[in-house]
Design a protein around this nucleic acid. Structure first.
Lengths: 237, 237
DNA sequence: TAATTAAAATGACTGTCAGTCAGAAAGTGA
DNA sequence: TCACTTTCTGACTGACAGTCATTTTAATTA
């Protein structure tokens, strides 16, 4: 009957209401400083209710993490969604730019990613639906990258001496390193290296693209890539 | 007088005794699970004494983090210490291998690095001697990388169209991404992507080296690098 | 060696907070 | 209206980080 559907919807709404409140509190003062009592008050619920929807504080934060992860993946998807007027090499670049833009626009979600990855307690993650979805998103992101590489190998812009799967992992991982650096710089908490060297994140990213581009481009595409890399727009979309 | 020196030495020994105990406890059960009471007992001291040497639990963990950071840098230094019979390009590779080996052999310290970087509370870090030293080590590591690139540009193995400083940041950051991946895979807590794809960390790292090598090598050095990259020994030293 | 002072160490105590649970309130269906 | 289920509540508990008045140990002086 329809009542059950409605109940399920309402339950889902409550969940989101709690996650919304948790985001406001945690994003404004950090995970450690945020208390469950405070989040409950912000959500206009009692603390006990929070625990009906999330088994503990970490799980609630993982729900936030998953939101970020879903959002990032939806941005990746957009790269492929439009008309297919991009070469494989361009797709790689677009995926990288998408990642970088995400970090800039959503530092709080990126923080959540870092916390998630620093979690070294298996049990905390093993039976978490949210963690599972984050891993699923990671797999999907990898598939986007593989697809871009395969397209590139077909259209001759990417050197086909690589195994696309292996290369995809490498590019995704190293991009992660670059975005992490950008994030740490952006939040300014530590890592003033870039400032000390008078480097901008854009310069850094431009060089990264040049490096990757030169590394994977076919001989044919290399020259074009290297000239393009001089003037990058990272706010592409 | 000599008494003061001796006192200073003893104080230093106490400090290390506490850090030793903290490592044993925290490395075995994780930061969250480890309590200050337990660490105190392991160190055969009272809890209060711990707080005479470290202002809080985080600061104690930062001391551990610094140990790891110092250790990593000492390994980097070794790459340059021996006879100077390496080309710049080889030095880059050796630095990367050193980093990877460090992660494999010291996953606990690497965990500490990840925690350190996920710390988003400025105040926690601003007045920490340990955090300051970690940043100093980071700068030094960057300088190692810059030096390797400059040597490479001199000996003709590295493409000199890059700015060595900019490139060093890029390579260090992306290497960080690769090592992070390797770590997550090694600890097996999450991130089973590699297993699912039947890839080994060595394969991943080999491809990374090939990518970077191809990306930065001079035309001249490229062919040699690409053939070398087929059979890598990551336990080099 | 005893008295005096300074430094180092102690552990009982406090405040905070994650997580629980017995019971209240709201919703459902007859 | 009643019986029953689901959802919610908030006072309570246990655990733990961090404190501080007191004790212990060491160094210095007479």
């Amino acid at each position: 009957m329809g009542t059950e559907d409605r109940k399920a919807r309402e339950k889902e709404r409550r969940r989101n209401q709690i996650i919304d409140a948790a985001e406001r509190i945690i994003f404004s003062k950090g995970l450690e400083q945020a208390t469950m009592d405070e989040i409950a008050e912000e959500a206009e619920l009692s603390k006990g209710t929070l625990y009906l929807y999330f088994k503990n504080k970490t799980e609630l934060y993982l729900a936030i993490t998953q939101r970020g992860s879903d959002l990032l993946n939806s941005q990746f998807a957009k790269v492929f969604a439009g008309g297919h007027d991009h070469t494989g090499l361009e797709l790689i670049r677009l995926l990288g730019e998408t990642y970088l833009n995400f970090v800039r626009e959503n530092p709080n979600y990126y923080n959540a990613f870092m916390y998630y990855e620093s979690l070294s307690d298996v049990n905390e993650l093993k039976d978490s639906k949210h963690a599972e979805q984050c891993e699923e998103n990671r797999r999907e992101a990898l598939n986007f990258m593989i697809r871009a590489l395969q397209i590139g190998m077909q259209d001759g812009t990417v050197n086909d001496s690589y195994d696309p799967k292996e290369l995809a992992v490498v590019i995704l991982s190293s991009t992660r390193g670059i975005t992490a650096m950008s994030h740490m710089h952006g939040t300014g908490y530590h890592f003033e290296m870039l400032d000390e060297m008078e480097l901008s994140v854009d310069t850094l990213f431009g060089n990264f693209l040049k490096l990757v581009g030169t590394g994977i481009a076919s001989e044919d595409a290399r020259k074009r890539w290297m000239t393009d890399s001089q003037n990058i727009e990272t706010n592409g979309k």
